Simulated assay, not measured.
Amino acid sequence: MLSLLLTLEYDGYDYSGWVKQKNVKTIQGELEKAFFRVCQQAIWTLGASKTDAGVHACDQKVLVKIPFQPRNNAFFIKTISKSLPPNINIKGYQVVASDFSVRMTKIKEYVYTINDNTYDLFNHRYELKVDKLLNVKKLHQISQIFVGEHNFAYFSGVKEGEEIATHRTITKIYVKRTKTKKVEFHFIAKGFIRYQIRMLTQNILACYWNKISLEQLQKDLNYPPVGKTTKYCAKPYGLCLKKIKY
């Protein structure tokens, strides 16, 4: 049995997320189809991060268990990559121990991109377009209330009855303007909850636009309303899994 850790990049706009599902296109589903076409047998895969529908990745990590030893690992992976749709690519791979845990990451970094300037036809699938110029310094200041350990129950997609821990620690959040004049929200932590980053992003924007006060955000963070979830959630296509470190 050969254990490989793949580095995958993909445009998730046309997919229903990472996790394979029946009757819909997913990244994991397309990856396993590519392996089946080449290997003529089902190949087990497990992703480090369950990206949502429409979300992109530059550095998704995928553990793959191959029940045989290819003659040439590099050629084998290259063949698999060529069998994938053009919006999914295997950037690289490495051989790992049989007990390697792909979910035990040290750092995950996600980036949410906002275009507050001229419409960009060739990047509209990867950014949220807003009409007014944003004050990056003010956005950064608002974002800092979410840094540290908190109960993010109100700012997540956890459903009632799900056994998912909502106490998480965000190591760092920073907002910057890029050389291309776009605005980027960077979120760094060991792990995130479903919809968490998109909800935090939209709540930061809502506070910036005076739709919700900073005091109310702080209250919802310190005392999450039982059984309720914020109504603010940014569009998925602005979000990208930027980096994973072990």
Score class of each variant (00 low, 15 high):
67 P>Q: 07
68 F>I: 05
68 F>T: 05
70 P>Q: 00
70 P>I: 02
71 R>Y: 10
71 R>A: 08
71 R>M: 07
72 N>E: 11
72 N>G: 04
73 N>T: 14
73 N>S: 07
73 N>V: 13
78 K>M: 07
78 K>W: 12
81 S>I: 10
81 S>N: 12
83 S>E: 14
84 L>V: 09
84 L>T: 06
86 P>Y: 06
86 P>A: 04
88 I>R: 03
92 G>D: 14
96 V>F: 08
97 A>V: 07
100 F>H: 10
100 F>M: 09
102 V>T: 06
102 V>G: 07
105 T>G: 10
105 T>L: 13
107 I>G: 03
108 K>H: 05
111 V>D: 00
111 V>N: 04
112 Y>H: 04
112 Y>Q: 04
113 T>H: 02
115 N>I: 00
116 D>T: 09
116 D>N: 10
118 T>R: 13
118 T>E: 11
123 N>F: 08
123 N>P: 01
125 R>D: 09
126 Y>T: 05
126 Y>N: 03
126 Y>I: 05
127 E>S: 14
128 L>G: 00
129 K>V: 09
130 V>S: 02
131 D>S: 15
131 D>Y: 12
132 K>V: 13
132 K>F: 09
133 L>Y: 06
134 L>D: 07
135 N>F: 03
136 V>W: 04
138 K>C: 05
140 H>R: 01
140 H>K: 05
142 I>L: 12
147 V>Q: 02
147 V>M: 01
151 N>T: 01
152 F>D: 02
153 A>P: 01
153 A>Q: 12
153 A>H: 03
155 F>N: 02
155 F>M: 07
156 S>C: 14
156 S>Q: 04
157 G>D: 08
159 K>H: 11
160 E>P: 01
162 E>P: 05
165 A>Y: 06
167 H>T: 15
168 R>W: 03
169 T>F: 09
169 T>E: 15
169 T>G: 04
171 T>F: 13
171 T>L: 13
175 V>F: 04
176 K>V: 12
177 R>Y: 11
